[in-house]
Computed example of a mutant assay.
Amino acid sequence: MFHTLRVREVERLTDDSVAITFAVPAELRETFRHTPGQHLTLRRTVDGEEIRRTYSICAPAAEPGADPVLRVGIRHVDGGAFSRYALKELAAGDTVDVMPPMGRFRLDPRPGRFAAVVGGSGITPVLSMAATLLAREPEARFCLIRSDRTVASTMFLDEVADLKDRFPDRLQVVTALSREERQSGLPSGRLDQERLGGLLPALLPVSEVDGWFLCGPLGLVTAAERALRGLGVDRRRVHQEIFHVAEAPVTGAGPAAPAPSHATLTATLGGRSGTWPVRDGESLLETVLRSRADAPYACKGGVCGTCRAFLVRGEVRMDRNFALEPEETDAGYVLACQSHPTTPTLELDFDR
């Protein structure tokens, strides 16, 4: 369900990115209380077409009883209808339709050692994680390895520096620049699998890290995941969120299962169920949206996980999946926006 929120502040971070802070009315404070790492889905309508985009919350999670701070980071994407609007037109006092926080790329504060590998705007949810964790857990430590093009293009540069000043003994920050030489720190260049495989053990005891958080472009996240696998890290300790995979290939392995000539979908959403025929070529999300405009979705690209649903009955083929952890797919969850029927009858539950 969307709520109309007023923009409190638009802050320029770099030439191509801004931070947007929303005012949260008293009656919605609990609705918009977030866990570090979660994101917001924003909506606007242009020429009759609805545009939805997800952006991670960068502000620390509020203490119980305190007012939540809703601040998201937005970087311009070539051809991005919403990001261009945010950078060029959105101003304090404007209103935006916003869905409550969601997402499973999250870190509930607890004692331990944690680490993140991020690229570009992937710093956004991790900034919330690190700030909340270090403030609430005096026994926690955090190592941040970030990759950016240049210093000038680095989002939240001051915020990370301030965090390092507040927690010098418990926060480790390492920055790699791909297009700019530095007088100190890592040599310039991309953080690929080979480089990360040598760098990570030199920075921290890899086997003692309780949780790894990978966030950013597909190439970096894939390289980091493979490097960690090569270092023997249990996959259950590795969590990832992908940004910008519009041209990514289909991830399904092996030949596609044949689609039935006729398929019927039953879906439960908000406590109500309905049954509809699946039209040729459409995703299960598209089937539901024809009758239920309140079906949850944002990116429609298999990235954000907003359309996650439990497959109660039947079988599907997913074109892409960059949002669900292996444990979730093993348990029966699918992305409705990427799912196509391979059996004549199917049942989805969006409420689980």
Rank of each mutant, 00 (worst) to 15 (best):
L289Q: 15
V303H: 00
V77G: 00
D319A: 14
G112W: 10
G185N: 05
S184N: 08
A86K: 01
C215Y: 09
S56A: 11
A259E: 13
R182L: 11
D169H: 11
Y55M: 09
C299F: 06
T329Y: 03
R229F: 06
P25F: 12
H3V: 04
E137D: 09
Q240D: 07
R106L: 08
R33V: 07
F22V: 13
V117M: 05
R236P: 00
A256E: 14
P205F: 03
P277E: 13
Q193E: 15
D94L: 07
T222Y: 00
R190S: 02
C299E: 09
L231G: 12
L269D: 05
E286A: 15
C143W: 14
C304A: 06
S17P: 10
S17R: 03
T268S: 12
H34R: 07
T222I: 00
L214N: 14
F167V: 02
R352G: 00
V278Y: 09
Q38C: 10
D148H: 07
A86E: 02
A23H: 12
D319M: 07
V245R: 00
A176F: 06
L231Y: 04
S121A: 14
A223L: 07
P205S: 08
P60L: 03
A248F: 06
S128I: 11
V312L: 09
S207R: 14
